[in-house]
Amino acid sequence: MVEYVITYIAHGDELKDSEVKGLTSDIESRLKVAPVKSRRLGLRAYDVYFELSTDDLKPLLADIIDSAQGIDVIVQTDGTNRQDKKLIVFDMDSTLIYQEVIEMIASYADVEDKVRDITNLAMNNEIDFKESLRQRVKLLEGLQMDSLYDEIKSKLLITNGVPEFCSFMKKTQGTKLCVLSGGFIQFAEFIKGELEFDYARANLLALDDNGRLTGETIGDIVDGQCKAETLLQLCQDYDIDVASSVMIGDGGNDLLAMAAAGFGIAWNAKPTVQKKAPCKLNTKSMKDVLYIFGYSDEEIKILFP
């Protein structure tokens, strides 16, 4: 038998008992088995545990997960790895920060709409990421970047709850924190420094002798395959069990790394990504990932009273 934990996380201020009862009843009816235990994690989150012989529970509950209004339903196996997260890898754009940096750069070249359209195709897995990056970077050719790096960095907004979430994991688990971005290394390194991360990898824009973009990148492209391979390499480098690793991102190019990691979380992601990812989280604060890891409000308040 496999013990599963199903976590309900409300998008709003409260997860009502009636909502817990309704979701649990629907799941019981689908599985034809009663939960073995349950516990409230806090005002907005609740855990329900089931024991089943199936090796993959999520497909059996897909329609319930998709139809829950204002509540994320996360399915995972229960065990020591739930809280024992030693490596967390993040996408950057629209994950660690609210913006898409390449669109911010594009606004200075008056091609923001064109770049955004291509970005959306890539994030929905409707176009190969490498090809999408090539097309978008080409649109930036000739832009003088020397004076723009610092200006754009000053405008970057870190996602709500990210600093608290990362601080909690470092202090309680000694977690290694890394950013793997399909964006650009100058900004990934900046975010790494701001959040005191351990590692950053991203793409490098090519400049001519006058500091203008050539419309190309230098070196290997950080696409989905690269993110997956790098995550596994980081596990090896840090001597971390892959089962204790997590990938958090919002785009189609994050799915391979989510599959390679011990667990993956689609953070306010594109609809197609939410369906394919191990789980989805659509709340307003990244700190809510702590509920997925099984931490209660009381445990969280020890560090953040």
Rank of each mutant, 00 (worst) to 15 (best):
M1L: 11
V2K: 13
Y4G: 13
V5L: 09
T7Y: 07
I9G: 13
I9K: 11
A10S: 11
A10Q: 07
G12Y: 07
G12D: 11
E14Q: 15
D17R: 09
D17I: 11
S18M: 03
K21M: 14
L31I: 00
L31D: 01
L31N: 00
P35L: 00
V36S: 15
S38R: 01
L41T: 04
G42M: 00
A45C: 12
V48G: 01
L52M: 13
D56E: 13
D56A: 14
I64V: 15
I65L: 10
A68N: 09
Q69M: 09
I71D: 12
D72I: 14
D72L: 10
D72S: 09
T77C: 01
N81R: 15
R82V: 11
K86F: 07
L87C: 10
I88V: 15
I88Q: 01
V89L: 06
F90D: 13
M92I: 02
Y98M: 02
Q99V: 04
I105Q: 04
S107A: 08
S107G: 01
D113G: 04
K114A: 11
I118P: 12
T119C: 03
N120T: 10
L121G: 05
A122Q: 06
N124I: 08
I127K: 06
F129D: 06
L133V: 08
R134F: 07
K138T: 02
L139C: 03
E141F: 05
G142V: 00
D146A: 10
L148R: 03
L148E: 09
Y149W: 15
I152S: 10
S154L: 05
K155L: 13
V162K: 01
C166E: 14
S167T: 15
K170D: 10
K170C: 02
K170P: 08
K170M: 07
K176V: 02
C178R: 09
V179F: 07
L180N: 02
L180I: 03
F184I: 11
I185W: 02
I185G: 05
Q186S: 14
F187H: 04
G193E: 15
E196C: 07
E196V: 09
N203A: 09
A206R: 14
L207V: 08
L207Q: 12
N210Y: 12
G211Q: 11
R212C: 03
T214A: 05
I218N: 05
G219Y: 05
D223L: 06
T230I: 06
L231C: 03
Q233N: 07
I240N: 10
D241R: 02
D241L: 08
S245H: 03
M247A: 04
I248M: 08
G249N: 05
G249P: 03
D250C: 09
N253Y: 00
L255D: 09
A257F: 04
W267Y: 03
K270M: 10
P271C: 13
T272W: 06
P278G: 06
K280P: 00
L281E: 08
M286K: 04
K287N: 05
V289I: 15
V289M: 14
V289Q: 01
V289E: 08
L290D: 05
L290F: 02
L290N: 03
G294T: 11
G294H: 07
S296Y: 05
D297Y: 14
E299K: 07
K301D: 14
F304I: 09
